[in-house]
Design a protein around this nucleic acid. Structure first.
Lengths: 349, 349
DNA sequence: CTGAAAGCGCTTACAG
DNA sequence: CTGAAAGCGCTTACAG
């Protein structure tokens, strides 16, 4: 009797803060926990009528499954790790943030959550924690380096992962925009307009993506039987000062157009040109890579490539989850791009 | 016999991928699971020698506890939620990213992980998921709005949380930089230099932080027996166009200095002044708020307030965890600031 | 100081 | 179609 009243008090409390369990539901409905579990998951044979009864009850009493318990029983965490560089530059943040938005959207649609870790070649300890503590079922990398310690670690650890970006290692799952062809097409368009002296300015040369863009640029030149000149390709440009030096040198050598590998660099280039009283597009053309907010409202409007980071996130998340559930997936997925032609590359002036 | 060999095979496999359990350790050492558990956690009475034996074995065989199981037994997830606005502007990202860095650093030092969700007044569904699915033990908010739906929801849900930023609601846990005094001090310094016609340009007026800064500004004026003029305070400035309009109006009215509530706005202000051929600091002074990379390398160097977002993250995480473990904590923690005086407010020219 | 046992809230062969 | 029971890998009163 005493025990009973205790129990009923406990149950009322449970109802108040939504902490009822599968056992409560089973008892209330006079069925077994097994049946309730099956009604919820839809797995296993179960009568249609029973299923409906359970589902209605659950709806009404706002039963929410305990994902920890579910995870323990199934040996899954229902978490995915998201590794962002601890050392990335300011201008990369919007890209990562938008990717993450896509990832969360997709993940939550299948009841997964995202755990974040900072990781770079300098420090992979947070990624190791995630794996060692078994806090995630798989991992999404926000970028790839040429000799990526995180990639090496994850391969060795044997945990499923996918990279946004490209890797030389074709055995790893990866999804990327087609940087190489995007850069090639943009460059070809410029060449078709009669522009010949093309400069290319880019960031860290140990990023795979930098290599891809450079390749596209060189390929385009080759299509026009041109070969790249040394002073016209400046990589590892990571400060306004270096940008200025590179731009000055290109202008001295008679550059007609400067292609910037990201919008941050482009902003520096434009600032330099303004300082040097070089007019765009009259004296020199300018093109960039992301069409991000950084370029917004610039006068003149800047010709730029455009990718879809949110879509990259969605596809990465989806592909990884498919792979984890044993489906056949392509190791490499390549997404498209747009070329946005604007005033900064006009030749009619 | 057969059973035995199976078992030993299974155990060898376990060793290979580090998936040994507390039961394996107990069996190997001829003690009970209880003892192993106690040796690891340090809770409960246990012989020093036994404890050492267990710890050595664990070290040697690389045993890692299963946090899911631990969590289920303790009714904890060892996860904290981190809510970032789904709709924040580009220039806020570095702040959030740096906060997050501090949060992860602190959290991982006590074996917690961070699960991310996007949330704003438009959409709190991801936050609801986190709570309903019991994926987190507590939540850290990256900012506060005046009528914050996320705050309202979390209060009602009864889950522990803390906000980075300030709230009118003094019952909620919060940690913030002292924006009001920072802005007051900066303004006072400018007033002390003899500057009288001070303009203030800020972003979204529904952010608590905007109000605080405005208050500091007005307080400083009051200390000098000045009252704010309407055209000299422009809020809800969220585009370069609006910035330009506000700046033009202030200049018409004879503004001697423009105080910008964030570095993004400051960048627009500087661009406008350049366009209008108004020289800084000769014709008009400029001061800003974050000393972020956005201002780096500007000529002239920009006078700015400086806060410590990483420290905000650390303190927020620490305070929340303390509160969750039942310790007494102050509802509101206020962190300091620095005033960096640079060329853009020089009056000697 | 140590251990057997129950429990956390689910899932899933297995048997009926 | 349904259920009793074992199990996921921990923790923790309780008893000794």
């Amino acid at each position: 009797m005493n025990e009973n009243s205790n129990k009923s008090i406990k149950k009322e409390e449970s109802f108040l803060n939504g902490k009822i369990t599968i056992a409560d539901v089973a008892e209330a409905l006079g069925v077994s926990k097994t049946t309730v579990s099956r009604a919820i998951s839809g797995k296993g044979r179960i009568g249609e009528e029973t299923k409906q009864r359970v589902r209605e009850y659950i709806e009404q009493y706002n039963y929410k499954p305990n994902h920890l318990a579910k995870g323990l029983a199934q040996q899954k965490t229902y978490n995915l790790g998201w590794v962002v560089p601890g050392d990335c530059s300011f201008s990369d943040l919007p890209f990562f943030q938008t990717c993450l938005g896509g990832i969360i959207d997709y993940a939550s649609s299948v009841d997964y959550d995202i755990v974040v870790a900072m990781g770079s070649n300098q420090d992979i300890s947070q990624v190791e924690r995630l794996v060692n503590n078994r806090k995630v079922d798989g991992i999404i990398l926000s970028r790839t380096l040429e000799n990526d310690r995180v990639v090496a670690y994850l391969k060795q650890a044997g945990i499923p992962f996918i990279a946004i970006g490209s890797s030389q290692d074709s055995s790893i799952l990866q999804v990327d925009s087609d940087h190489s062809n995007a850069c090639r097409e943009l460059t070809c368009i410029l060449l078709l307009r009669g522009i010949r002296k093309l400069g290319l300015i880019g960031g860290a040369s140990n990023l795979v993506v930098t290599k891809s863009r450079q390749k596209g640029f060189v390929d385009a030149l080759a299509q026009f039987r041109l070969s790249p000149e040394e002073d016209f390709i400046a990589l590892d440009i990571d400060s306004p000062l270096k940008t200025e030096q590179a731009v000055r040198k290109m202008l001295e050598k008679g550059a007609e157009c400067i292609v910037c590998m990201d919008d941050s660099i482009c902003t520096s280039v434009i600032a330099t040109l303004r300082k040097l009283k070089v007019s765009v597009p009259k004296d020199v053309k300018v093109a960039s890579f992301y069409n991000s907010v950084l370029l917004e409202n610039n006068t003149p409007a800047i010709t730029s490539l455009q990718f879809d980071p949110k879509q990259l996130g969605i596809v990465a998340c989806k592909t990884l989850l498919e792979k984890m559930s044993g489906e056949e997936v392509n190791n490499k997925t390549t997404l498209g791009y747009d070329v946005l032609l604007k005033e900064s590359t006009d030749i009619t002036q």
